[in-house]
């Protein structure tokens, strides 16, 4: 397939994942705002905006952190290059670009949902309908992934799409953890009293892991357990270990299909060792923040190597 098309597929699924993750963050924020006092809710919106990476932009345009401003900024603000509307638009643009390499089921899933979102986001979103928007995005994600799973040939196109998904997902989980790492420092958690279990639960919710975590840990919530779950548990499909493993498999399949390995496979092997040989104690010893930054840097380097290996750009 064409390098440009592979690039389109890879980014189509990165943007889709990014839109889904942003929607989930937003959903968690909404829940928090409903169940907490005003001050905590404000803090929560601040953290949601910060995680999106456009805090300065938001603050330049808004007076403070209230829900209405926050979710409209995240969903549809024209000045926000990472708004859900922009991201879903990028999903569709990349899908058009890669149209000859995706099944019509996938294309129609993208196009129909884009049409629905475009309509929903044409005007400011009220409190009553923000939930609908979030659900539409999540349903869109499920339908597109379902169409990919059920209708795509397992050729290189499929593996470029999956590589985009797992690269973005790993990045997102790492970013969310890093934004909250101060809450998870052992020193604090061991002291215990100042801990807010709601904050923790919220981290798990924003990666759709609350149910899975409590199922595995019988309701015991502690910093060590959460970090271990989100970083090292390769049964959880949004953990760093799981995403790395999946990305490794996709890159191995791409190398096999192309008859040769490239720099991306080499970087992948090193990154893989970095996460499989480490224990939770070592992570805390090294510093969670340092560990996550290193993880994200390796991720970015693998992404660049994929673009090089497979001639994404002229």
């Amino acid at each position: 397939m064409l390098g440009r098309t592979a690039n389109g597929l890879f980014w189509m699924f990165r943007y889709l994942e990014r839109a889904e993750n942003t929607a989930r963050l937003l959903e968690t924020g909404l829940r928090m705002a409903l169940t907490r006092d005003v001050q905590t809710a404000r803090e929560e919106w601040r953290s949601v905006i910060a995680t999106s990476g456009y805090k300065e932009l938001y603050e330049a345009e808004n007076d403070g952190y209230d829900g209405m401003s926050a979710w409209n900024f995240i969903l549809r603000d024209k000045s926000n290059p990472a708004s859900i509307r922009e991201m879903f638009g990028a999903v569709r643009t990349n899908a058009r670009l890669a149209r000859t390499n995706i099944s019509s089921d996938i294309w129609e899933a993208v196009n129909e949902n884009w049409m629905a979102l475009d309509k929903m986001l044409a005007r400011p979103v009220s409190q009553g309908s923000v939930g609908d928007v979030v659900h539409t995005i999540r349903r869109a994600g499920m339908r597109i992934h379902g169409a990919l799973d059920g209708s795509m040939l397992r050729s290189d196109a499929y593996h470029f799409a999956r590589a985009g998904t797992f690269m973005e997902r790993a990045d997102s989980t790492a970013r969310i953890l890093d934004m909250k790492y101060y809450l998870l420092l052992p020193s604090l958690s061991y002291v215990g009293s100042s801990l807010d279990s709601g904050q923790w639960e919220q981290i798990l919710r924003s990666v759709a892991g609350a149910r899975a975590y409590s199922w595995l840990n019988a309701g015991q919530i502690d910093a060590r357990g959460i970090v271990e779950f989100l970083v090292l548990d390769d049964r959880f499909p949004r953990s760093l270990a799981f995403c790395r493993g999946a990305l490794r498999d996709n890159l191995a399949a791409l190398a096999r299909l192309h008859g040769q390995e490239g720099a991306s496979n080499e970087l992948m092997r090193a990154a893989d060792m970095h996460i499989t040989d480490i224990t939770i104690d070592q992570i805390f010893e090294q510093g969670l923040h340092e560990f996550l930054v290193d993880f994200m840097n390796r991720n970015a380097a693998i992404g660049e190597a994929i673009a090089q290996d497979y001639r994404f750009l002229a």
Partner: peptide
């Protein structure tokens, strides 16, 4: 079942018009 190419995908290589695929 044909490739959809743009000008930026193409280049003259060894006297032929060639497209930049993921394997060259």
């Amino acid at each position: 079942g044909a490739e959809l190419v743009e000008g930026s995908d193409l280049r003259v290589v060894n006297g032929l018009v060639q497209m930049r695929t993921t394997s060259g």
